[in-house]
């Protein structure tokens, strides 16, 4: 399953200017990710997890090194090409859900498909399917302010998954959720990973997430300090 390489990081460095000098967020990362992986970047705040996800997700640019995503060199993409890759091959799940408050659940999930220009009837079916995956069919007409934290994050998962992307980046997806909701959404993502062969890359320091993933990449001060493949060790709710 993991023989199919889709992401390759080769000497990735990222510096941010601070005052007269600069802060190094990533200091020479070499990593590969294969199709269907369920992996986590683990580390304390400031270790470089989010920076790495943003760069692989083409939301940020590397300072040095090379990042290849499904054959595309992220550092060499122009804004339009990067947007096209994000819209067609990537999904994002954020700690704060980032749902559009004036849209209904249906409209939030529909948004990525609108950007892809998918035809109306196909789009409707895909949206309904995605909402069904996350078990929110009864909330299809609700707006984010009417949803709980867990429900909101499930909508975010549906939005990320609706276009069946190659990779989903999840940045601290359980940080604002209680244990029950955390397990619920992790089980949902694990199921989607298994059924759709979607690669999931988490940035987290939450033990609940760590217990679900099959690959744990520990970061410290912008460096990979440990990279291990494990069998999931789920904790109970």
């Amino acid at each position: 399953m993991e023989a199919d390489l889709i992401i390759k990081l080769d000497g990735l460095k990222k510096h941010y200017p601070i005052g007269g000098g600069h802060f190094t967020a990533l200091n020479g990362i070499n990593l590969d990710f294969a199709r269907g992986e369920f992996a986590a970047l683990i580390g304390p705040s400031g270790s470089g997890k989010t920076t790495m996800i943003n760069i692989i997700g083409s939301l940020d640019m590397p300072s040095e090194g090379r990042v290849t995503f499904m054959g595309y060199s992220i550092g060499e993409l122009n804004a339009k090409s990067a947007a096209l890759i994000r819209s067609s091959k990537m999904g994002f799940i954020f700690q704060t859900y980032n749902l559009l408050p004036v849209y209904t659940v249906f409209e939030n999930v529909e948004l990525p498909l609108l950007l892809l220009g998918i035809e109306k009837s196909t789009r409707k079916k895909m949206v309904r399917d995605a909402i069904e995956w996350v078990g929110l069919t009864d909330k299809i007409k609700s707006k984010p302010p009417q949803l709980s934290g867990g429900e909101s994050q499930r909508v975010a998962i549906a939005r990320a998954m609706v276009k069946k992307p190659a990779v989903v980046f999840a940045d601290e997806p359980t940080a604002n959720l209680d244990a029950a909701n955390s397990h619920h959404i992790l089980q949902t993502m694990e199921k989607l990973n298994r059924e759709l062969q979607t690669t999931f890359i988490f940035a987290t320091h939450d033990e609940k997430v760590i217990s679900y993933v099959r690959r744990r990449i520990y970061l410290s001060d912008g460096l990979v300090v440990r990279d291990e493949r494990v069998a999931p060790q789920r904790t109970e709710v």
């Binding site: 997700g57 939301l59 804004a79 339009k80 947007a83 096209l84 994000r86 819209s87 067609s88 990537m90 994002f92 954020f94 704060t96 980032n98 559009l100 948004l111 990525p112 950007l115 892809l116 939005r159």
Partner: peptide
């Protein structure tokens, strides 16, 4: 701002 960032993350170009 967060909404705008979300649009970009979902694949909208800056021009869009």
């Amino acid at each position: 701002q967060r909404e705008i960032g979300t649009y970009v993350a979902l694949g909208m170009t800056r021009r869009q």
